[in-house]
Write a protein that binds this DNA or RNA. Sequence first.
DNA 1: TTGATTGCAAATAATTTGCAGAGAG
DNA 2: CTCTCTGCAAATTATTTGCAATCAA
Lengths: 128, 128
Amino acid sequence: MSSARATRQREVIAQVIEQAEGPLGVPEIHGRARQILPRLGIATVYRTLKLLTEQRQIHAVAVDGESLYEKTGQGHHHHFSCERCSRVFTLHVCPVDLPGGTVFAGGFLVRSHEVTLYGLCPTCAPQA
Amino acid sequence: MSSARATRQREVIAQVIEQAEGPLGVPEIHGRARQILPRLGIATVYRTLKLLTEQRQIHAVAVDGESLYEKTGQGHHHHFSCERCSRVFTLHVCPVDLPGGTVFAGGFLVRSHEVTLYGLCPTCAPQA
DNA sequence: TTGATTGCAAATAATTTGCAGAGAG
DNA sequence: CTCTCTGCAAATTATTTGCAATCAA
């Protein structure tokens, strides 16, 4: 049976995602990792994202129709997408009041939820 | 200057989206429209979605990393994605308490929000 | 040494564009 | 009649896969 090996590429890609201020897209991950490993191929990024996802080290979240990756184990949280600079941040607040097992009109049984807040980030807000 | 013409294709595509139970993806829109116009090309679907979006007749929402289209003017609402059948529904409820202009810790100025609820739809829930 | 991993390039899948003919106004 | 719109196919763009060389264990 196969075993996953520890390689410099995987180490760097995982670290880029760990240290990010929010979930990152594939081009962003590739770009940041390349500052450390210039010859890193995009195929390796995709393959590593798939591997890390299977290992539950990271997972994908959908924001604005794009798949972004973030580390797991951050607890319940949501995302903030800046309308000016387009960066996405992780926010450890939950503005939703939904007891588990809530049933909505019509019979929709809610098991979990995802919230994306839109507006201006701390950097862009003062400039507005 | 150019003016948009009323064509059968545009009429059918718009109608498919208007009558849907929730936002639809491109393959779904193409499939439903083809039941009426079998020779409808996928390129026309993409071009029409772009046109209708510019006209503000419809708009895109991101659910599970995919762009889905729905008519505008439905008022404040959110979406429910069924974990079993994968269909997406429109729900006219808002479980979020966010007065406009709320500022979150760190200086995030919130202007709007999007919520996606996950669970079992009325059809799938009874079978669970 | 052994076999997993990588970079590159070719293969797919998704979306966009060019173009000649069809159709709206 | 004029000029937009459509279907088809070719062109992009995004993601995946094949393969020989490289590297971890």
